[in-house]
Amino acid sequence: MQYTNLGRSGLKVSRLCLGTMNFGWQLGEADSHAILDAGLAAGINFVDTADMYGARDYEGTAETYIGSWFAKSGRRDEVVLATKVYQPMGDGPNDRGLSARHIVAACEASLTRLGTDRIDLYQMHHIDRGTPWEEIWQAMDRLVAQGKVLYVGSSNFAGWHLAGAQAAAMKRHSLGLVSEQLKYSLLTRAVELEVVPAAQALGIGLLPWSPLAQGLLSGALRKHREGAAGRTTTHAAARVAEHFEQLQRYETFCDELGLHPAAVALAWLLGRPGVTAPIVGPRSAEQLTVPTQALETTLDDDAVARLNELFPPVGNGGPGPEAWAW
């Protein structure tokens, strides 16, 4: 396994992050524990969750499963633990968002479910346009001072949100954001216009979610031909149909390289500027095999150029305003 700093912080994390969105919704406790065991066995020390993952009636099931794994395995200190706050966790008007009240209450609830005394990376799950940065950082600074949160990150922010958050944090002499979790893959490159360059300029590490575009880049057509299990929802089928010719050319190219499509997609992301760790969310322990192979995969300039042809960047490519202005 390879390790790197999380953004400009001194915290070392694995170059793959283990996502747990399937915990509770698709996987039971035993299978979730098996994936955590396999992740650490592969050298992954970075685990990402959210208070609302697996939640039924706001139970926070994914966090609960991780907490029971900590209790059983005794491996809490080996994990860089990330969770999130913002989504509704109750029926009340203050049971959501990024008010100081909800941030503090949600943190306490997450700590209880996770069975731990601190959250290594506490991420804002979405921008809250109705709460001022002064209030948000007041709550986060309080949690950091209490030792309940060590680092703060964001998710699904625009570039100007990152800049605004950092400007407000600097006024308080706070570290501010160390990471941004963003939807980023060969099929989803709009973030290269402003989010990626903003994060690089501010020293914010990038944690791509859905790096395989909900399975489309993991050999979706090959799986269909071979009758292998995969995403079979109507939405997934519509997305495969939408990108069919593009995926067909992509899988042919991966065959020419002699590499698994998922390994190619992850290797491309790992080589992108500012990317710390793509988030992989396996539905079984065995599904971790290909992502770890991506760490040993090097794409040369010709391969990267071919991928740019297959999955063109937005506009002229690269950051704005050059990408659209000239």
Score class of each variant (00 low, 15 high):
residue 187 L to T: 10
residue 20 T to Q: 10
residue 318 G to H: 08
residue 266 L to A: 08
residue 251 E to L: 10
residue 247 L to N: 08
residue 34 A to N: 02
residue 158 A to S: 13
residue 187 L to C: 13
residue 14 S to N: 07
residue 261 P to D: 07
residue 208 P to H: 11
residue 292 T to L: 15
residue 49 T to F: 07
residue 187 L to S: 12
residue 172 R to P: 00
residue 140 M to E: 01
residue 133 W to N: 03
residue 308 N to M: 05
residue 275 V to C: 07
residue 19 G to W: 05
residue 324 W to K: 01
residue 5 N to C: 13
residue 72 K to D: 14
residue 128 D to T: 03
residue 65 Y to N: 02
residue 244 F to W: 13
residue 37 D to E: 14
residue 201 A to W: 05
residue 220 A to L: 09
residue 310 L to F: 09
residue 65 Y to R: 02
residue 203 G to E: 11
residue 260 H to T: 01
residue 200 Q to M: 15
residue 290 V to A: 09
residue 150 L to M: 10
residue 132 P to N: 07
residue 146 Q to F: 00
residue 9 S to C: 08
residue 24 G to R: 07
residue 178 V to A: 06
residue 232 T to N: 13
residue 310 L to K: 11
residue 79 V to A: 03
residue 260 H to P: 06
residue 12 K to D: 01
residue 64 T to Y: 02
residue 183 K to P: 00
residue 143 L to N: 02
residue 235 H to M: 14
residue 88 P to L: 10
residue 298 T to M: 11
residue 3 Y to Q: 13
residue 220 A to V: 10
residue 98 L to R: 08
residue 316 N to R: 15
residue 21 M to H: 07
residue 179 S to N: 06
residue 30 A to G: 00
residue 137 W to P: 06
residue 154 S to V: 01
residue 243 H to R: 14
residue 89 M to K: 02
residue 171 K to W: 01
residue 188 T to M: 13
residue 77 D to G: 04
residue 240 V to N: 03
residue 148 K to S: 05
residue 298 T to G: 00
residue 89 M to H: 02
residue 212 L to V: 12
residue 71 A to F: 00
residue 54 G to D: 03
residue 286 E to A: 15
residue 206 L to I: 14
residue 194 E to C: 06
residue 197 P to I: 08
residue 235 H to C: 00
residue 39 G to E: 07
residue 224 H to S: 15
residue 194 E to G: 05
residue 115 G to D: 01
residue 159 G to K: 08
residue 14 S to L: 04
residue 202 L to Q: 09
residue 202 L to H: 10
residue 294 A to G: 08
residue 104 V to H: 06
residue 179 S to Q: 08
residue 139 A to D: 05
residue 4 T to P: 02
residue 191 V to Y: 11
residue 79 V to N: 03
residue 295 L to H: 10
residue 75 R to Q: 14
residue 123 Q to V: 04
residue 318 G to F: 09
residue 88 P to T: 05
residue 230 G to Q: 15
residue 235 H to D: 14
residue 226 E to P: 00
residue 159 G to Q: 07
residue 133 W to Q: 08
residue 186 L to D: 10
residue 208 P to N: 13
residue 276 T to C: 09
residue 306 R to Y: 02
residue 70 F to I: 13
residue 238 A to R: 13
residue 44 I to K: 01
residue 15 R to Y: 03
residue 319 P to A: 15
residue 154 S to F: 00
residue 283 R to Q: 13
residue 278 P to T: 06
residue 244 F to K: 14
residue 269 L to I: 08
residue 31 D to M: 01
